[in-house]
Design a protein around this nucleic acid. Structure first.
Length: 514
RNA sequence: GGCCCCGUCAUCUAGCGGUCUAGGAUGCCAGCCUUUCAAGCUGGUUGCGCGGGUUCGAAUCCCGUCGGGGCCGCCA
């Protein structure tokens, strides 16, 4: 059996959509798990939608997820180019040969005319596809249209009858009648190839053996299969694709089987509709910025349409590579469930060691202005001390700064609500005594601090809550923080005591007589 | 409208004729724990869209029906 060759062919339009990321992941997993090759090809045939920055963003997002490629636009490979626009000569040659062979023809309708046709068809309840009006234009008619200043698109001549069936790794056998498929455009008026053509040609030329893509492309498959038939037919000794490849100086198509297909269920939002911008974040970058870990994204994305068994749902990336298989991909739409993502992320964070968690937290604290862009060793050490205290309390990395930013600040900002709630009643007395107790605790450790505060509880006849909360607010500025004694122990004692004293001024004294 | 795909708890998912009085997870609720917030532990919650058939037996197979989604572009 030949080694599988898989690819991810994104259009460089904008950022990497989570749906695209899932597609990329599945292909990558199939490649890595099958000892195959993963190819990245950028499909920038639509010049209007393509630019360099968008492509770089795409590559960065893939790298962040850890989806490394063996052949691609940045690293090259034996079956390049990997930028689709650079393969234009090949596409042109194929289109020309298809026309010569009578499988494709020029059509001169304008976009406006076609749009009007579609409108009319819609209103009359007819199929909205192309009528085939220009299928058999004579050379004279073509010349006349050209004389009018019209430009031609090239359309593929699809069969008028019969059906096409193909085997899909996820759906099983899919069968469609050719009467449903009208002549489709393979080259635009400006000569550039459309997705149908370029994508098919490139997959074939680059020897792709398995194509996993979204279900939204299921209906595109018959057209591509038709093209593949034409391109690969070698009854004359060599195929149309071979000739085009030779003509344009590209390497021959590798000797591999024709690609098979796997159509992945679409990803839907809470409203069960295809996931889109209205559903909130759909770019993987946004999830990165919100503090989701790349390995968790892979885990979660893998679960969007795939399952391993009836109970396992957390996988490391190596486990995914080993266990993933297309035959366990489901057919139902997959719901992008953010709660589930959060839960998985929280679980993973709990597994992180102090050093690693601190490492991953740094960029988020910098982004929150809690740390300078180059933290000092002392700040770094403090963060590592704080790491075990926040670990259980956050589900995303971005949730950490609100919890611990105060520890790096020179001055605390007291939260109004926390002050109102806890710096009242006997809080003044508590703070006075706490300042005294804390200045004397020896050594300055969590255990001794706790013991000191407990003694204070006894002395004042108060519960821990009544003592701890005022101190917590005084030192951290908030009524919510990591465990107090452990936290205090990480800080400089003088700072702690000073903050406790300073907070004294914010205490609302009890009303007269109470 | 045509074609294609899909239909198990609120949500995702396991289930590929008997082991299912339907399992796991997320969410939610309650209790325990407790210095705040979490975490953890324990328990609870709700489901095979509907109607026919096939079969000794159906969540699992078939048909119909209803519902949802996808695609019908000189986007990919």
């Amino acid at each position: 059996m030949t080694a599988p060759r898989l690819r991810f062919p994104p259009a460089p339009s904008g950022w990497l959509h989570v749906g695209g990321a899932r597609t990329a992941l599945y292909n990558w997993l199939a490649a890595r798990g099958g000892d195959g090759t993963f190819v990245l090809r950028i499909e920038d045939t639509d010049a209007e939608r393509s630019d360099d920055a968008a492509m770089r963003g795409m590559l960065d997002s893939l790298r962040w997820l850890g989806l490394t490629w063996d052949e691609g636009p940045d690293i090259g490979g034996p079956h390049g180019p990997y930028l689709q626009s650079a393969r234009r000569p090949l596409h042109d040659a194929v289109v020309r040969r298809l026309q010569e062979a009578g499988q494709a023809y020029e059509a001169f309708e304008t976009a406006e005319e076609l749009e009007a046709d579609r409108q009319r068809a819609q209103e009359q309840g007819r199929p909205p596809g192309y009528s085939g009006a220009h299928r058999d234009l004579t050379p004279e008619q073509r010349a006349a249209y050209r004389a009018e200043g019209r430009e031609a698109v090239v359309r593929a001549r699809t069969p008028d009858e019969g059906t096409i069936a193909f085997d899909d790794a996820v759906r099983g056998t899919v069968e469609v009648g050719w009467d449903q498929i009208s002549d489709f455009v393979i080259a635009r008026a400006d000569g550039s190839p459309t997705y149908y053509l370029a994508n098919t040609v490139d997959d074939l030329a680059q020897g792709i053996t398995l194509i996993a893509r979204g279900e939204d492309l299921l209906n595109a498959t018959p057209r591509q299969l038709l093209l593949a038939d034409w391109l690969l037919d070698d009854t004359g000794g060599h195929s149309l694709l071979d000739e085009a490849l030779a003509e344009t100086g590209l390497v021959p198509r590798p000797d591999v089987p024709r690609p098979t297909y796997a159509h992945l269920p679409i990803i839907v939002g809470e409203d069960r509709k295809k996931l889109g911008k209205r559903h909130g974040s759909v770019a993987v970058d946004e999830y990165r910025d919100q503090g989701y870990l790349p390995e968790v994204m892979c885990n979660f994305l893998a679960l969007l349409g795939w399952s391993y068994d009836d109970r396992t749902e957390r996988f490391t990336v190596p486990e995914l590579i080993e266990r993933f298989s297309l035959d366990r991909v489901g057919r139902n739409p997959a719901l992008f469930d953010t709660d589930k993502l959060r839960a998985l992320n929280g679980d993973r964070i709990k597994e992180l060691g102090d050093t690693e968690l601190a490492d991953r937290l740094v960029p988020f604290l910098i982004a929150a202005d809690a740390l300078p862009s180059h933290p000092t060793p002392a700040q770094r050490a403090l963060l590592e001390g704080l790491a075990p205290l926040v670990r259980e309390r956050i589900q995303t990395l971005a949730e950490a700064p609100p919890l611990i930013a105060w520890a790096f600040a020179d001055e605390v900002t007291l939260d109004e609500r926390s002050v109102a709630k806890h710096l009242k009643g006997r809080a003044g007395e508590v703070l006075d005594r706490a300042a005294a107790v804390l200045s004397e605790v020896e050594p300055w450790q969590a255990e001794t601090i706790l013991a000191g505060l407990d003694e204070l509880c006894t002395e004042l006849g108060l519960g821990r809550g009544k003592v701890m909360q005022p101190v917590r607010v005084a030192v951290t500025g908030s009524q919510v923080s990591p465990p107090l004694p452990e936290t205090l122990a990480l800080l400089d004692r003088d700072v702690v005591v000073a903050r406790v004293r300073a907070a004294r001024a914010h205490v609302t004294e009890p009303a007269e007589g109470s």
